[in-house]
Nucleic acid binder design. Sequence first.
RNA 1: GUCCCCAUCGUCUAGCCUGGUCCAGGACAUCGGCCUUUCACGCCGGUAACAGGGGUUCAAAUCCCCUUGGGGACGCCA
Length: 464
Amino acid sequence: MSEIVTRFAPSPTGRLHVGGARTAIFNWLLARQNGGRFILRIEDTDRQRSTDENTRGILASMSWLGLDWDGEPIYQSKRFDLYNAYIDKLLETGHAYYCTCTPEDVEAMREEARAKGLKPKYSGRCREKDLGPVPGAVVRLKAPISGTTVVDDMVKGPVSVENAEMDDMILRRADGTPTYNLAVVVDDSEMGVTHVIRGDDHLNNTPRQIIIYKALGLPVPRFGHVPMILGPDKKKLSKRHGATSVMEYEKDGFLPEAMVNYLVRLGWSSGDQEIFSKDELVKAFSTDNLGSSAAVFDKDKLLWLNAHYIKEAAPGRLAELTAPFLAGLGLEDVDAAYLAKAIPLLQPRANTLAEMAEKAFCFAVADEALAYDEKAVEKFLTPEARELLAALRADLAGLDGFTHDGLEKTIQEFLAAREIKFKILAQPIRVAITGGTASPGLYETMEVMGRDRVLARLDRALTL
RNA sequence: GUCCCCAUCGUCUAGCCUGGUCCAGGACAUCGGCCUUUCACGCCGGUAACAGGGGUUCAAAUCCCCUUGGGGACGCCA
């Protein structure tokens, strides 16, 4: 069996969109699962809208997601000679012709067709004129005018379109540059691409591309068109729905493994399984169970997956990933080891790295800078509570070691001696050392903070 | 307008190809309860769907047709 070659071909006119990321993942999965190759091709033939910054951003997002590609990325902007050679070949074999109709002429033809209730298209006026390479002329494909073209789609099944529906598309513009459909066919063929998984929105021009393959006498790859991702209003996902680029999710504190897991499950499934590691995906993936209906992007489920992966991640890694978010909150150079100790307490409580940083803030902030919630102080640091805290402070200061068990024993004895319940003491302590009413368990929090911090904060709280 | 695609809980989906095991299963969200030093985690339970109409068949979520609804494409953009 021949090698499977897939590709992802973004155009650098913006950031990597979650929809694009999803098709990239599917292609990557198909290649990796079969020991094939996964190639990255940058479709930057539109020099107006393509930027290097976008290209770098897309590559960065791919890397962030863990989608490695084989070989160097291919840039279409550097292959114009190749495309033109193919166009010339088409011209020579009579599969293409020069056309001198202006954009205005063509627009008029479209209007006319529309008026008749037909599909707007080019009339084929220059098709039989046998024009030569006139300056300013475009090259059009001499497409078949009868018959049917069938796409044997991996996800939609056979899709057939009447050739009469398609017009003679432009292959080479007046300025000599090749158009998208031509370039894609040439590249996919040159690169040996065997399987193309792409968005639903391309389904319409797949028959066009097949016609070009046939005119060129080239083998046609297998196509699979996955449905698009919709916003909550069931419209194509766009900026107005909120974050749409992979980069934004990275900035919002999502983990790449959560992103990949979520995106794959959106439109693909394997029984009832929800959680998939990369390895499991590579093993389980199959184009057979790609869904064929559009899916709404559900941020709540992404959040749930993110929370899941945060719970599973190694504290050291999380500490590293959280540091930039803490810096964003104004805390630079937080001690990594200390942060790593606090993180396990926060893992079940944070849905994103941003939340992780917010919750780690009271651990990392300097004692004198700890902010106290006014209402909490008023409610829990009552005169009676202060008396207890002052007494407890003495016990804690003399405590041998400052561990969870030691702290629990000391505090329980403290309570027993006074015949009071932990409930009475817990919130005052919490407010005193964290500044607020919600935090991880007190014993573990105190152990992580350490004696100096706890005592300093207790002292500070008593002065409030 | 024309063409193409799609249609199971609010959302993602399993089941559909190879009709009966489905008064439709799982997950997120939601609601209730348990756990509990707060907040979470976790655990237990509940509400909730085969778009509608015709066929075919002993039997249809599953096959066929129509309607409706949604999406996409109709560029010298990709």
